[in-house]
Amino acid sequence: MTELRSLLQKKIQSGEKLLSIYLTAGFPDAEATLPLLQALAEGGADFIELGVPFSDPLADGPVIQAASTQALAAGMSVEKALQLCDRFTGEHELPVLLMGYANPFMKFGWQRLAEQAQQARVAGMIIPDLPPEESETVQETLRAAGISLVFLASPNTSEARIRLIDRLCDAFVYAVSVTGVTGARDSLPAQTTEFLQRLRSLTEHPVLVGFGVSSAATARSLVAHADGVIIGSSVIELIRTAPGLDAACERVHAFVREIKTAIS
């Protein structure tokens, strides 16, 4: 069992519902990331997905696209994201996962990535354009460094593939709530519940649901059928519209606290 898995397991067994927050590294600039991570931790996030920006994020909606573009313009890279992660995990217990597209990681080198991510105490990785059929050697490389590779399942994923994902899983299954790109939605379709029920009937692994989760009410209704929720675009939007870094930290702190309370 990986470290991430046992951490999640402990919380789930004590009856807690989990909250994971996605934050684009280097958005709005590199100096903002550590204070924002601190605010997320103090607000009550259970773990963090630190986004490594990519020029062509084809699974993301406009909010995360724009954040990625801005972070890249400010000089963010795989190497710098790893440094930020190292500094944060040196002072906090909170697990951090890296989320990003395959090409920047491949260019960095999978072996080098595994080594440096291990040094930076990265708990896991989420790579949306690396489905199970393309990830065998990557998963082996990461696993050897104690890092979980998290796979996604979506409402149109077949039973056979859910079983495949279940077999490969060593931390949690990332359930994509709707067919679409990332981004806040006012409500989620009834099929989301159906999908989560189907998913949970096919896997013993923890299920966290993301894509489109934006409010405390949505989060609360989702955790009836999942072990936790993942929120990204809403947090990015709060940061983007804040008048400064201090205000951004206050807002995300309050938002995280509100969601965590709602799902508890």
Binding site: P128, D129, L130, P131, E134, A153, S154, T179
Partner: peptide, 19 residues
């Protein structure tokens, strides 16, 4: 069968597009 030309090609797509 994996959609590869030597080491090139493949299906590097989000899970939603696999079906």
């Amino acid at each position: 069968a994996q959609g590869k030309f030597g080491r090139f090609g493949g299906k590097f797509v989000p899970e939603i597009l696999i079906p």
